[in-house]
Structures are given as structure tokens and as C-alpha cells.
């Protein structure tokens, strides 16, 4: 087995070299589909339904990019990746972009040679415990058994947090969210830790969500965002500005409901006009057509709509906007202008 992995790695690296010459945009257009790395199943962010169709907050970003580039948001091949395989998948060219609750960190950006193109969710690592334990704060967790997904920043944050608070813990490494749930629910670990959004999503799938609480401590900054490989700036720009288009659309009040009307002819707001392609040619600068952003927003709505339908308070996951509100509403979402 080891040997096949090794040769596979060799082969994958050799393939990358062949691809590095052509631009990712051309490759995607030639293939007629966008290969998008998503998580193996996290309700609200990326999960396949009974028919095998992917839905979720991260999935919507992939679809928006596919709509902008290929004109059809369904032309996406979703590649499920685990916390361990995601970077290899991206680096080897197995996927064109990664939208998988991935934390933007210095070493990933610089050392692993990836380009984070923005933040689509401001998150932080939290703890979930059964209510029956009567724990009110993470500082009471001395001696607890903690389930962590391996291959994430989570385990490093956890080690740092417990060390700086001088309390001990027993880490239980697990591979996937599903395994983590099984261990947590059977009591093989006291605490389940991952990003607070992931905890909320996981809790939503429990039979009795109210028996579990997410502790108030958020022990890390986890800006989650899509990422691409270093070296293809045009491709990076396309994804960065597709995400920005979704966020700006919300700020400007462009929704999936009114976008058709708004894009019929140039209106009074020049920024909306530039965004929707009725004025200027921002799309041409990206190597796309004029209506790229219109299609991206029309696909599953603006950022606010995507948030509400997948993970917002109306959905089973039930996360409040909090830091993820537009800057005009006191949140952190603030995009550079479209001009």
C-alpha cells in the first residue's frame, strides 16, 4: 500500500508539471466542468442529499464560480476531501479550487504555496459538551477526553490552549466528522472540538440537539475561505472576485429575485451597473464575459441569501450572522469596490 501511495505521489507530481503550463481557466473551460474540493459531509456547508446532489454554504461558492466561468452552476464535479487529503488534492491538480472550511494561516498561504482568495466565513474553534456534564467553561475541562479531527489547525490550537491554561487533556484523534460524532455520542470522549460553525452543524444532526451545549470560549481565529494553487493569478482573481461579487451583491441589495430586472438596463447606481455588466467591462479584464457576476449571483443568490438558506437561523444549523454580517450591519464582510 505504501508503495502505491508513493508512486501515486510521484505520478501526481509529474502530472502537475504537465498542467502548470496551461492556465487553470483554459483547463476548466476545456473540461467543461469545475472540479471543486469540498468536505466529506458537513451539513449546511457541504453535504450530498439523497439524490447525490451537493448543497451547502461552501458548495454555493463552487456553483457561483462555475456559473461565472462556464455559464452553468451545475457543471461542477464535487470532490470530497478529508482534512488530510485536501491540500494534496489541490496541489496535485486533482481539484481546481478548494472550498472546504479551510483556515487561512500563514504557513498554508506561504509554505504550502496556496493562495487564499478571501474569507467566506469568520469562524473560531469551540467546544461542545453534553449538558449532563455540567461544564460551564472550557477552563473546567481539566482531565477531559477530547475528540479532534486530525490534520487540522484544531489540534494545534487545542494543544496551545490547554498548555497555556495549564490543564491536562487526553486527545482522541479521529479521521472524519462522522466518526467524531459516533465517539462523542457514545461517551468515548467528553468533548468534541472543531470550528464553532462545524459544531453547530454537527449538533443540528443529533437526535436531541438540546442535550448538548457549545461552550462560550472561542479559542482561535479561524477565517475560512476558498483557496487555489500559487502561480495562476488570473484563476485566483476570478475566484476572489466571484466571492466579492456575492458579498457586494448583498451590500448593494442585489438578490436572486431582483437580479434579472436590475440587469436589463443600466440603473442609477454605477457600482451595480459595473457589477452586473451593464456598464464597463470588468468581466473582460478577468478573461470572462460581461455577465459573469450576474450569473454567479443568480445561481444561488447573494452572500446573505446563501448564508440564510444553508446555515442561517432559519435553517436546521441555526447560526447567527454575527461576525459574518456585512460591514454596514456591524460585521466583518467588507469587499474592495468594483471599479
Amino acid at each position: 500500500m505504501k508503495k502505491s501511495v508513493f508512486i501515486g505521489t510521484l505520478a501526481a507530481v509529474s502530472v502537475t508539471a504537465g498542467m502548470a503550463a496551461a492556465s487553470t481557466l483554459d483547463d476548466v473551460k476545456a473540461a467543461g466542468e469545475l472540479k471543486c474540493g469540498v468536505s466529506t459531509g458537513l451539513v449546511g456547508f457541504a453535504a450530498a442529499d439523497a439524490n447525490g446532489v451537493y448543497h451547502g454554504f461552501d458548495v454555493a461558492v463552487c456553483r457561483a464560480v462555475a456559473a461565472a466561468v462556464l455559464g452553468d452552476g451545475d457543471k461542477v464535479k464535487f470532490v470530497p476531501t478529508t482534512g488530510k487529503t485536501r491540500f494534496t488534492a489541490l496541489a496535485s491538480g486533482e481539484v481546481d479550487m478548494l472550498a472546504r472550511n479551510t483556515t487561512w494561516t500563514f504557513s498554508r498561504d506561504v509554505d504550502l504555496k496556496f493562495e487564499f482568495i478571501g474569507v467566506n466565513y469568520y469562524d473560531g474553534q469551540g467546544f461542545m459538551v453534553p449538558k449532563a456534564l455540567g461544564v460551564a467553561s472550557a477552563k473546567d475541562l481539566d482531565g477531559a477526553t477530547v475528540c479532534i479531527q486530525t490534520g487540522t489547525t484544531t489540534e494545534l490550537n487545542l494543544a496551545d490552549y490547554f498548555r497555556s491554561n495549564n490543564i491536562s487533556y487526553e486527545p482522541v484523534p479521529i479521521e472524519t466528522n462522522a466518526e467524531g460524532q459516533a465517539q462523542y455520542l457514545s461517551g468515548a470522549c467528553d468533548v468534541y472540538t472543531t470550528d464553532a460553525s462545524g459544531l453547530a452543524a454537527t449538533r443540528a444532526t443529533f437526535e436531541k440537539p438540546d442535550d448538548h451545549v457549545v461552550l462560550p470560549e472561542i479559542i482561535s481565529k479561524e477565517p475560512l475561505g476558498p483557496l487555489v494553487r500559487h502561480g495562476d493569478n488570473q484563476w485566483g482573481d476570478i475566484i476572489r472576485w466571484t466571492l466579492n461579487a456575492l458579498i457586494t451583491a448583498e451590500e448593494l441589495g442585489v438578490t436572486s429575485a431582483n437580479i434579472d430586472k436590475m440587469s436589463m438596463e443600466a440603473g442609477n447606481n454605477p457600482e451595480i451597473n459595473r457589477l452586473l455588466g451593464t456598464e464597463g467591462d470588468l468581466g473582460g479584464m478577468l478573461g470572462l464575459d460581461k455577465e459573469w457576476a450576474k450569473r454567479a449571483v443568480a445561481q444561488s443568490g447573494n452572500y446573505g441569501e446563501i448564508f440564510d438558506s444553508n446555515i442561517g437561523e432559519g435553517s436546521p444549523v441555526g447560526i447567527a450572522r454575527g461576525l459574518n454580517a456585512s460591514w454596514t450591519d456591524g460585521g466583518l464582510l467588507y469587499t474592495p469596490p468594483f471599479r
Binding site: K2, V5, V13, F87, S107, D111, G151, P173
Partner: peptide, 26 residues
């Protein structure tokens, strides 16, 4: 698969992942 931290779990798992040194680790 069961969360036992053997050499594949440490060097071939977390270390590989945190440092991004696939070739060397393998």
C-alpha cells in the same frame, strides 16, 4: 481508522499535514 497514533498517524498523518512534506514523510 480507530485513532491509534502509530507512525502512519504521526509522521504520515499529522506531521505530513502540518508541514506539507508529503514526499519526505512517505
Amino acid at each position: 481508522a480507530v485513532g491509534y497514533m502509530d507512525i502512519t498517524g504521526t509522521l504520515g498523518g499529522i506531521t505530513l499535514n502540518q508541514t506539507g512534506r508529503e514526499m519526505e514523510s512517505l
